[in-house]
């Protein structure tokens, strides 16, 4: 297992290096110069800035400087437009916590609710309870989160005043969490529905399997057989969807964050591309790639932990 993890880590680093290289080249080869922005800049200033940041040199040389700065100085460059002169990782550092906080609360709230709904729907299959849950699942999955966000904001923020209309960055304590309720709710509907739908299908199938019949014939009650055997077996495939959800958490939600004025990661990538803030764009791409690679690694490793057959399957 240790060798397997080391192999995967080496592969991860090689993949990340390739991604950095591709991201840098693609972003730097995009049309439009960083400093030709239609303002009152003289050509002398544009030339000076291009020389300062080596933008006037061949792309391969720029790439050399970029790698040199990363490996020898751990310097990923500064933002040129979004927040001039600020190191790009400082910008990410400022933006990630609020995105993480809102999305993680939303996700951790959604998972148990989704599981309860899924279990209820499965054990009450084809009853009114199942129909209601299935209907809500369809609604939550088919309606995008920004529609929920807009409705929640309008009804519970604007019309009734139950919660703040936007996220309040300067609030503390309860007031701060109150301003997070609506975006958390807007983001929670989708994972609730996904977990509920998946678990319902898995559990319903498991409940009809032969080992469940065997468990009951051995004298287990309905509840015992469901919890000890049905639920446990249904949880294994559920891990496949829950772990990747964490990768999305860091990405934030562009529209929900915009609607509630949350200064998170949501719109940062789009903003940096639109404003030709190349170093920031590359940093964001690398960051997301790293998160995705780590998630894939965790998923792969977790298969082996959750279900030893996966780990052992490759052995001769």
């Amino acid at each position: 297992m240790v060798r397997y993890i080391i192999n995967r880590l080496i592969a991860l680093l090689i993949t990340l290096f390739i991604i950095i290289s591709i991201a840098f080249c693609v972003v730097r080869l995009m049309p439009g110069s960083v400093y030709e922005m239609g303002g009152d800049l003289s050509q002398t200033v544009i030339d000076a800035l291009n020389a300062k940041y080596h933008f006037n040199e061949p792309i391969i040389k720029q790439y050399g400087y970029y790698l040199e700065n990363i490996f020898f100085h751990w310097d990923w460059g500064n933002s040129a437009k979004i927040r001039p002169n600020v190191p790009v990782f400082e910008i990410l550092r400022d933006r990630i916590p609020i995105t993480l906080e809102i999305n993680l609360i939303s996700l951790f709230g959604a998972i148990p609710i989704g599981m309860v709904a899924g279990i209820l729907a499965a054990i009450k299959k084809n009853t009114i309870v199942d129909h209601i849950i299935s209907f809500m699942v369809v609604v939550f999955i088919s309606i995008p989160s920004f529609i929920f966000a807009t409705c929640l904001q309008y009804f519970f923020g604007f019309k009734t005043g139950s919660f703040p209309i936007i996220y309040d960055v300067s609030a503390t304590g309860t007031a701060r969490y109150a301003s997070m309720v609506l975006p958390i709710l807007a983001l929670a509907f989708d994972p609730i529905a996904r977990v509920a739908r998946y678990l319902r299908a898995e559990l319903a199938e498991t409940m009809n399997s032969e080992f469940m019949l065997l468990a009951k014939t051995k004298g287990l009650t309905y509840a015992q057989s469901t919890v000890r055997h049905g639920l446990r077996n249904s949880m294994v495939p559920l891990a496949n969807i829950i772990i990747p959800m964490f990768a999305n958490v860091l990405g934030g939600s562009l529209v929900v964050e915009t609607i509630f004025s949350i200064p998170g990661m949501g719109g940062l990538m789009v903003d940096s591309i639109n404003s030709s803030d190349h170093m920031l764009t590359v940093a964001i791409l690398v960051f997301y790639s790293l998160i995705s690679l780590i998630t894939i690694l965790i998923v792969d490793l977790s298969y082996g932990i959750i279900d030893p057959r996966v780990r052992m399957g490759g052995k001769k």
Partner: peptide, 18 residues
């Protein structure tokens, strides 16, 4: 000064006296 990118949200804040 608040950064509120969404025009609809801005309108709600104004109508709400915020």
């Amino acid at each position: 000064v608040k950064v509120v990118e969404d025009a609809g949200t801005q309108m709600q804040l104004f109508e709400n006296g915020e």
